[in-house]
Computed example of a mutant assay.
Amino acid sequence: MSKMQPAYAFTASASAFLLIGLLAGCASEPPLPPGGAQTGQPGYDGQAAYNKPYKVKGKTYFPLTSATGYREIGLASWYGAESGNRTADGSRYDPQALTAAHKTLPIPSKVRVTNLRNGRFIDVLVNDRGPFSPNRLIDLSQGAATQLGMQGQTEVEVKYIDAPADAQ
């Protein structure tokens, strides 16, 4: 007579394999940027989802893999009502923090924003994507806009400084 294994022995080992598979899936990238990320683009291997190409309102944006030497002049606006929402890097948006949203600068990036009307400047952390309105270069947090003395949309210079030390 052959000896049969109890049914629970198979169930316990199958459960252990299932649990290991589920736990392995917990280590994932941050959420995709608005519109999702495209894959297979050259130069984007190993990048976090928020630094890969993405599409918003039918337009595809290609984040820079390096921003060294980046300098651009354009319109800045500010946002504040989104308090508590998640930014592209997964952190909670704080309107008083010195942060910004940019369509293509790597996340995270540190940039110097200069108000061209009054000469004030401030260093901010780019941790979000946007603005997706026409003719706008950067969206600043309410706190950054206040320190720059902005009133509505303002012409600014945005100059890349570096990636924050904790991101390297």
Results as ranks from 00 to 15, higher is better:
150 M>W: 08
72 E>P: 02
160 Y>V: 09
46 G>W: 14
107 I>E: 00
103 K>F: 07
32 L>K: 07
113 V>D: 02
160 Y>L: 10
100 A>Y: 04
135 N>G: 10
85 N>P: 05
63 P>K: 00
85 N>L: 14
41 Q>Y: 15
5 Q>S: 10
75 L>P: 04
98 L>F: 09
124 V>S: 04
16 A>H: 11
113 V>E: 01
111 V>S: 00
55 K>I: 04
18 L>S: 13
40 G>C: 11
109 S>F: 06
87 T>W: 03
100 A>T: 00
21 G>R: 04
40 G>K: 12
47 Q>M: 14
10 F>K: 07
32 L>C: 07
45 D>W: 12
60 T>K: 06
101 A>Y: 02
158 V>E: 03
113 V>A: 00
82 E>W: 09
58 G>W: 14
135 N>I: 10
43 G>W: 12
97 A>H: 00
53 P>A: 05
131 P>E: 01
89 D>H: 02
81 A>V: 11
115 N>I: 11
159 K>V: 14
142 Q>C: 11
59 K>C: 01
76 A>M: 13
17 F>E: 05
144 A>S: 12
149 G>P: 06
50 Y>E: 00
139 D>W: 12
16 A>F: 15
131 P>Q: 08
19 L>S: 12
24 A>K: 09
41 Q>G: 07
55 K>Y: 09
155 E>M: 14
91 S>H: 09
166 D>V: 12
2 S>Q: 08
9 A>D: 06
143 G>D: 02
149 G>E: 03
146 T>V: 11
13 S>E: 02
114 T>G: 04
110 K>A: 08
43 G>P: 02
89 D>P: 01
35 G>W: 01
103 K>N: 06
34 P>G: 02
16 A>V: 15
36 G>K: 01
35 G>Q: 06
23 L>R: 09
148 L>W: 04
149 G>R: 10
129 R>H: 00
151 Q>A: 15
120 R>I: 05
73 I>N: 06
74 G>P: 04
30 P>A: 14
25 G>R: 12
39 T>G: 08
154 T>W: 13
136 R>F: 14
116 L>P: 08
63 P>Q: 05
146 T>Q: 13
42 P>R: 06
110 K>S: 06
7 A>R: 13
131 P>N: 07
154 T>L: 13
